[in-house]
Design a protein around this nucleic acid. Structure first.
Lengths: 339, 339
DNA sequence: TTAATTGACTAAATCGGTTTAGTTTTCCAA
DNA sequence: TTGGAAAACTAAACCGATTTAGTCAATTAA
């Protein structure tokens, strides 16, 4: 069975490429192709398993029915899940997904954006490094459809779907306070990501509102790429007699996992000596010893909404969708914070 | 800054599209374009940020410098990790990656294969449902480059990269035997996947070689989509007085996670009453209570090797690469099996 | 009876690249 | 001084679709 092209069908049926193309694109009626001819074309195409060359189609139409997805790292379960939801939703709307990981590298991200644009994606969904302001502005200027997820540029007005990082983090901290913890540390990453700043701010606000002081000594910010090695000292320092904390808020799941590992190595009892809680969760946080409480992000909603906003934009449907969405996280209380 | 095309460059510099195209594809020298002209073209293209339309290029060249990746589910951490390695390796070799999830559905998988072919991917990497023999044969017949990963078709000779499921599973079981467990159950999924069959076979072989009988009552095969709800009964049944097992082998990570959940609900002590071990692992198996022993798959090697074999095939480089690879798993012993 | 309309199509341009088969001009050797 | 080769290009075909602007015959309206 060899490949068959539009012109083959046309030749075989003694018709023009035009007629065949129109019919196969469901525009036979409006172009007054007789019912009979339509049937002949459809049947023949079906029988010979005709599938249009999408490159040719894309070139001609100036679009590709493809969405580009750029995330920091597809092997991060959080982004993998979002990717899955994006994929599913996109498929139901007739779009394919091309993905790539930026590895938190601004240059790479920029490269990927252009690479995808050259591949004629119809729109982009980006969990950005937040270090490509210029490129984002260019995209917007060019009126190119895109949606930011997870991370947005606070001072640029764009479509985005993020979560309430501030609120989620404040909730977590308040929960610890409510349970009598007074000396709560924070382990975060060194980063200018707004999401991370907001989580820190949420933590601080909860403390301040409770009339507590913020103690810089128990506020650790680790290098995003070296957090595993830096974690040992950070934890050791926090639980030492000097600072003697009774709880830790982790601003992201892999920090919590790593932190718990260190706590165990130091034989610190969780939650009796130190309670912990994490923003976002890994797959098995409910199985961990102890099960870790989290502010869970609605990955399904993030993915679905992003696609909907994007496709709405691409197809200029003007269905009214709120395109600056801040979703709420869900506080899941498990043993790790003592109740 | 508006988009600039080949013909714009040509017009601007008073040259032909041919000259510009040749130079931009690094074929100026062999086509005797003067150094000076080459420099003019290169400079102008650079300055104006020229980026060729990949659809046009792809249409013309009949290739796209894109690899298609089909996995059962990108939100499964196992496939997400493989995807990440595939992506990294592909990028260094100049390829992009398009991915899609088949959701274990043969029809969907077939659909995706054709959809990607229509998008002119240069090659495919597939973790197949193993239910599309005909399509795989067609691919092979058409001499289309592809590599199977994780799951292969045992009776079709193709490129593949898989792991030694039999050996890995046998090792796990033998480890439990060595530690004095005699009544070892198996929890697997109902599936014709060769990988799953091999894992079961490895388990059975270990028992038989030890002179033990295989007891169908403690060999559970759950529905792949309903395993969560079926797990409760399966576990309850296995630990009941009648069958009274002292260990369980899980053939995949999510079964282990789910199974452990149920064991905890039933207040079965792991590993003192029942030891467990799992083929493959989630991100946090070392943090779980108790840390779960596993046969760990080399996801990085799987991804890298698959890309190498594929690109070698695409580019017909004939570098000698073994293209039927069976990689070894690594037995990681943790507390869950009692030592 | 004739012009206008409708029905059922088609030829050729187009999308933005790559590539084949030349074309000029210059230079050098016989 | 002339023919062949080399240097430095270019015109036009091509990839496989979509789309614009028609064509031609039959029918309808005036």
């Amino acid at each position: 069975m060899k490949k068959i092209f539009l012109k083959d069908i046309a030749a075989e049926l003694n018709l023009s490429k035009t007629a065949v193309s129109l019919v196969l694109n469901n525009r036979g009626d409006e172009n007054k192709i007789s019912k009979e001819t339509q049937k002949r074309i459809l049947d023949f195409a079906q029988k010979n398993n005709y599938r249009p060359n999408q490159m040719a189609r894309g070139l001609s139409l100036g679009k590709s029915e493809t969405i580009g997805l750029i995330v920091p790292n597809i092997s991060d379960i959080f982004y993998a899940r979002i990717a899955h939801h994006i994929e599913l939703r996109a498929k139901t709307l007739g779009y394919n997904v091309v993905f790539s990981s930026s590895n938190e590298d601004a240059k790479m991200e920029k490269e990927l954006m252009y690479s995808m644009l050259n591949r004629q994606v119809d729109g982009l969904i980006i969990a950005s490094t937040q270090k490509n302001k210029d490129e984002i502005l260019k995209l917007r200027e060019a009126n190119f459809p895109f949606v930011l997820i997870d991370r947005h540029y606070p001072d640029i007005k764009t479509n985005y779907v993020i979560v309430d990082n501030f609120g989620g983090s404040k909730n977590m901290t308040q929960h610890l306070l409510k349970n009598g913890r007074r000396n709560i540390g924070l382990v975060s990453i060194k980063s200018e990501l707004d999401a991370i700043l907001q989580r820190r701010l949420g933590y601080e606000t909860a403390l301040v509102e409770e009339g507590l002081e913020i103690n810089a000594g128990i506020l650790k910010e680790l290098d995003p790429f070296a957090y595993k090695s830096e974690m040992k000292d950070a934890i050791k320092d926090m639980v030492s007699g000097l600072t003697g904390i009774d709880a830790i808020v982790f601003t992201t799941h892999y920090l919590a996992a790593s932190g718990l590992r260190e706590l165990k190595l130091l034989d610190v009892k969780v939650p009796s000596e130190v309670a912990i809680i994490s923003f976002d969760e890994l797959g098995a946080f409910d199985l961990v010893d102890p099960p870790i409480s989290t502010s869970k992000q609605p990955v399904d909603d993030i993915g679905n909404l992003a696609v909907e906003i994007l496709v709405n934009d691409i197809e200029k449907k003007n269905i009214k969708i709120e395109n600056q969405s801040i979703l709420q996280t869900q506080l899941l209380i498990r043993k790790s914070c003592g109740v």
